[in-house]
Design a protein around this nucleic acid. Structure first.
Length: 743
DNA sequence: CGCGAGGATATTTTT
DNA sequence: TATCCTCGCG
């Protein structure tokens, strides 16, 4: 097996060191997935470990899927018994089997963010909380953080003693959990929390899984929160073969509860831990990597490491500043179109990364005009769209009508003339008799307060009952189609005829194909496709998961979603103070928040393999207001000599600042005063930077080879360079595009 | 009860 | 800007 010879010595060590705790500090692009897959193969092939005893945990389904594929390729026989899964699906699998031991039903439903919000609104209304004073969101985030830290409602209440706001939160938290249990539902955080609780409460179950998972590997370890750490630690405490892989410089999920001390203090937790550093980067050019290093070196309190690469130097980082976001989108669209036309890259090689989802819009609009195929990742999750959620709630209701939330959502969709008053009356009846909302609906005729409305409820109940009896033999996709037929959901949309309605119908079609795909998957695995199975699969998918390799479109996504991915040609857009780093972190008291933004920037830069373009706009519309922003501080942190063009902060930026300082400041805090004179911005593209070659110089072009520069003129945006190529004759080109190198 | 108008509000990131 | 919520009318 010379398989392992292709690994570098550090990687080999990580692969061969199989026993006991191991911490692998894997820099960006250092081949950590490769290490993990080889390690799995090594365990099985060389150490004779039964694949059944190996577990690999990741954060996204996509990462899990990739790892699964690569392990299957390497290992062959028996690879399917390796447990490769995300934290959340792992917990769901465990809880589906054993959560009854905690007093839940094994066919619990999973609440997403929207469901949580609905539930919270309900609770606030019932507890008569002024949501102007205390927002639903703040409760939810307090609860989420508590769960991340494994703090129960009781403990929370104990800690809150004295503080009024916290006492309120404790009260809400308690009520929230009560409601979840009543609806037989778990939220995302509960999945982890309850699994840990289960292990603590039931030694028998714990032992079963400890025996099963004798070798545990955790990917993206820097993103684990306290609950996840506890989970992994508990599982590993018997055999102690815990291998975690992470990079503290890529920790970007603190807001979601990630505890960076999980990685920083790993060695304290496991004093006998073997620490291995992977510092060779195989992904990026020297220039890109050095730019990334330049930025991240401004952070304090990181694990010492020096990422390096043997790759070639590559092009400089292309920095461009524009007047507006439109110009920025324009430039990037043109640049991509040009690179594709020249055969340099395919659309699929290009990615645009930005800080906030809202920034995608300008690019989308521009791409539609230019006919550039693209795909936006993130934003509104497919399964969170209204029509999809409606249908899923129907399925949930058919599957398990214990979830009041789902029932209430769809009872009047499409319109059945059932309004708030009726709902309230049914709810009261349900509460009084301690039955679920749906069961109360079934008894509508007995609810005296309802009067004539009871008649409207009956068809709904009949519909659900009929579908429920059909579900077992119809299968998920057929059930969906019948449901659409019966409810007239699609017909109603089609009647609208609006563009938006059309998109919704398309989404519904996509949902049906996903159901079909699910059934096919079950068939190939030899498992029984069930409604619950489908709902579960659907509950845990993120949008990144849908990225297919091999399809040819430009990918647009947030920097957060981009982690773990790589692209030959990357654009980092909106590098402006106030956008990235975000305004919130600039004004925050806590200096570590800026550091997290910086890590995010590091992640962004290191996504690029060959080409990196960084752009910023001087003014930008942010939710209807014009903001004037400086070039991001992160751009200044990139060593000057690595930038193809210096950020011309001196002349133009100062000029603009001088003239508009008052306005700019105003704009930052309130509305722009429209009465004031509009600022004229001068395009600075032609200013103040010299090309590394002159007329008469010999230059080299990526595609056209060597030639002589015969003319340089200042064009609208950039220098226009005329070159007489030895093999291709005379060509005129823009300097930024041409990437000519002096020879 | 349903619908539309108008106002308030938010945007940082997500499994 | 885009969405969400409330309110008032038919």
């Amino acid at each position: 097996m010379s398989n392992y010879d292709t690994l570098n010595p550090m990687q080999q060590e990580a692969v061969f060191h199989t026993e006991g705790p191991v911490l692998i500090l894997a820099g960006a692009g250092s081949g950590k997935t490769r290490v993990l897959t080889h390690r799995t193969a090594y365990l099985i092939e060389e150490k004779g470990v039964n694949p059944y005893h190996i577990m690999a945990i990741t954060f996204t389904n996509k990462a899990a899927g990739e790892m699964r594929e690569r392990i299957d390729d390497m290992v062959g026989f028996g690879s399917e018994s390796v447990w490769v899964s995300t934290f959340h699906s792992t917990c769901v699998r465990i809880l589906r089997r054993y959560i009854d031991r905690l007093g839940y039903d094994n066919n619990f439903t999973i609440y997403d963010g929207d469901d949580q919000k609905t539930l919270m609104k309900d609770i606030c209304r019932r507890l008569q909380i002024d949501t102007k004073l205390y927002r639903e969101k703040s409760f939810l985030s307090a609860i989420s953080h508590a769960k991340d830290e494994l703090i129960s409602p009781e403990e929370f209440a104990l800690n809150a003693a004295g503080d009024y706001a916290q006492k309120k939160q404790a009260q809400v938290y308690t009520e929230y959990q009560k409601m979840l249990r009543k609806n037989n539902a778990l939220d995302f955080d509960d999945l982890i929390f309850k699994t840990v609780e289960l292990f603590r409460a039931d030694p028998e179950v714990l032992d079963y899984y400890q025996e099963r998972f004798r070798y545990i590997m955790v990917d993206e370890y820097q993103d684990t929160n306290t609950a996840q750490f506890q989970l992994v630690k508990t599982l590993a405490s018997k055999y102690r073969n815990l291998c975690v892989v992470g990079d503290d410089d890529q920790s970007i999920y603190k807001f979601r509860g990630a505890n960076i001390y999980n990685i920083l203090n790993f060695e304290q937790e496991f004093p006998d831990a073997r620490v291995i550093k992977l510092e060779q980067n195989y992904r990026s050019t020297k220039n890109i990597l050095n730019a990334a290093n330049g930025v991240i070196s401004n952070n304090v309190g990181r694990k010492a490491k020096a990422l390096w690469t043997d790759n070639e130097e590559g092009d400089k980082v292309n920095f461009q500043q524009f007047d507006t976001g439109y110009d920025e989108a324009d430039y990037i669209a043109n640049d991509i179109a040009k690179k594709v036309r020249d055969g340099e890259y395919n659309y699929g090689d290009c990615a645009i990364l930005y800080r906030t989802n809202a920034q995608s819009r300008l690019f989308e609009e521009r791409f539609v005009v230019s006919n550039i195929p693209y795909k936006v990742v993130g934003g509104v999750n497919f399964y969170a769209r209204r029509e999809i959620k409606d249908l899923l709630c129907y399925l949930k209701t058919i599957d398990n009508a214990r979830d009041d939330l789902a029932v209430r959502r769809i009872i009047n969709v499409p319109k059945r003339g059932i309004g708030a008053t009726t709902l309230a009356r049914v709810q009261t009846y349900a509460n009084e008799n301690e039955i679920s909302f749906y069961n109360a609906l079934k008894m509508a005729e007995d609810i005296s307060t309802l009067g004539r409305s009871a008649v409207k409820i009956k068809p709904f109940v009949t519909l659900i009952q009929t579908m429920r009896s059909k579900a077992p033999y119809l299968g998920v996709s057929a059930l969906l189609e019948e449901l659409l037929e019966e409810t007239g959901y699609v017909k109603e949309l089609e009647a609208e005829g609006e563009e938006e309605a059309k998109a919704r119908v398309e989404n519904i079609d996509e949902l049906i194909s996903k159901a079909v795909a699910y059934e096919e998957k079950c068939q190939s695995e030899g498992t029984e496709p069930t409604l619950s199975g489908f709902l579960e699969e659907v509950a845990l998918v993120a949008d990144v998961d849908s990225l297919e390799s091999g399809s040819d479109y430009v990918v647009l996504m947030t920097l957060h979603s981009a982690k773990g991915l790589e692209f030959p040609n990357v654009y980092l857009a909106g590098l402006e103070d106030g956008v990235f780093p975000s305004y919130m972190t600039i004004v925050a008291d806590d200096p570590t928040e800026i550091e997290e933004e910086r890590r995010l920037c590091y992640v962004g830069i290191t996504r690029a393999m060959e080409r990196l373009t960084i752009t910023s706009a001087r003014m930008r519309m942010v939710r209807g207001e014009t903001q004037y922003n400086r070039v991001s501080r992160f751009v200044q942190e990139i060593p000057q000599e690595l930038l193809g063009r210096a950020p011309e902060k001196v002349r133009l930026a100062e000029a603009v600042k001088a003239r508009t300082f008052e306005q700019a400041r105003e704009a930052f805090h309130s509305k722009v005063s429209y009465a004031s004179t509009p600022v004229e911005f001068v395009s600075a593209a032609t200013e103040n930077h010299s090309l590394p070659y002159q007329v008469g110089d010999r230059v080299r072009h990526l595609k056209f080879g060597d030639g002589t520069v015969t003319n340089i003129t200042a064009g609208g945006r950039d220098f226009e360079v005329t070159v007489d190529f030895d093999a291709f004759g005379t060509k005129k080109m823009f300097a930024i595009f041409a990437k000519l190198k002096k020879i």
